[in-house]
Design a binder for these strands. Structure first.
Lengths: 217, 217
DNA sequence: TTGACAAAAGAACGACCGTTCGTTTTAATC
DNA sequence: GATTAAAACGAACGGTCGTTCTTTTGTCAA
């Protein structure tokens, strides 16, 4: 068998994978025990026993989504040197994530954000904390780029993070709802523009990349 | 009585008002006949008869939301002279709309966009068409500003619209989910930055405003 | 004021929701 | 291979969903 995990852990993982896809297309509200049981070929009660309540199932799904995003976007970026290289890696991973995401219906965290932003509870708290963590991470990356001398000294890292996230949301909506084929290009142009006007005077993206290529992380 | 409308038209309007608030906080999925009947003090069947189906109710709610947005954001902007003044008015109305919206739970069209972006049908079509109309309107405003000589000649109006909408989305999420008090400031800074770097060489916002103040619409 | 029609209520429908319980099957351990 | 615990099932619960009837109430014009 595949691992040292028990049977329960394995099927739980299978369920979560299917639940993630279902949430992606149908939203947290559309994630029902019945439809999930049908997709996994299980009985409602058998599936239900793995989570104890619907809310815990939802929580597990969101945690899975966050972990996926962290693994494919955040973590590879932190492997890059601080400053501009890390920011560049972050943007590239992000775009790649949006383009080749295994989730058919877009980011579950984004739709859940709008779905639950008025419903107090542990789920909302978790989503808000996660999104804030992402925002703070981008902001911290920008702040560090200022320290490294890559970005202008008067740059507001929070402003940078705000505009960066805005591009991400706009990209998702323009691509997924409107279906504009230029969405990718618009997003990339917006990001390079944002980075370009954040650079310290006299700096170019290339000059920094070359300089960083020879230093340790 | 209040108008020449019939009783049915009046109660229908009351229902729609309540439905709009409910959709704003709970999303289109949370808009149920039962809860809406309770809020309006009507019976389920009595309320239902006004719309014929749940989908038609949802459609009516979205149309109401669009009309509200058009009335308070788009229309006053079109009363301004073409070019920068119209764009400025658009931004100001938009911010004011987000700040003093009568809807307690944020824009229903935005949450519906993410809720239905994977569910084909007339509702999705309507939402996509509406959002595209808004995007095209912003783009057209920018294109016109280029013609008027307010914006640089090499400005891409679609790129302008993309970044503008991104600010709107980011603002909504940062404010409503994360509850950042600086959200308003970040959004305003982002918008003025966007407008500032779109201006034709040598132009300032003030110079154009003064010049336009004396011309006819 | 009466008669015609619109509007609202009431009861019920089948379907699905999340959840519980007792039983049966399956997997892990000795 | 037998014992025991974990995992999955099947049936049922009370509730709510959207929807369809029939019946009662209210409106509005002749």
């Amino acid at each position: 068998m595949s691992r040292g995990e028990s049977k329960g852990e394995r099927t739980r993982a299978v369920i979560l994978g299917e639940a993630l896809a279902l949430t992606s297309t149908d939203g947290l509200a559309g994630l029902t025990i019945g439809s999930l049981a049908e997709r996994t070929g299980m009985s409602k009660s058998g599936l239900f026993a793995h989570f104890g309540s619907k809310e815990q199932l939802q929580q597990a799904v969101l945690e899975e989504a966050v972990e996926m995003f962290t693994l494919r976007v955040i973590r590879p970026a932190t492997a890059q040197p601080r400053g501009l290289p890390r920011i560049k890696a972050l943007c590239e991973n992000w775009v790649a994530w949006l383009r080749d995401s295994p989730l058919p219906g877009g980011c579950p965290m984004l739709s859940a954000s709008l779905e639950l932003d008025d419903k107090p509870g542990p789920l909302r708290d978790y989503i808000a904390a996660s999104q804030e963590k992402l925002r703070a991470f981008v902001s911290e990356c920008a702040r560090r780029a200022v320290i490294e001398g890559h970005f202008r000294e008067d740059l507001d890292p929070d402003q940078f993070a705000f505009e960066m996230l805005g591009v991400g949301f706009a990209h998702s909506l323009t691509r997924r709802l409107l279906g504009h084929p230029e969405a990718d290009r618009w997003a990339c142009t917006a990001v390079s523009g944002l980075i370009g006007r954040s650079l310290a005077p006299g700096r170019t993206v290339e000059s920094i990349s070359n300089a960083c290529a020879h230093q340790t992380h």
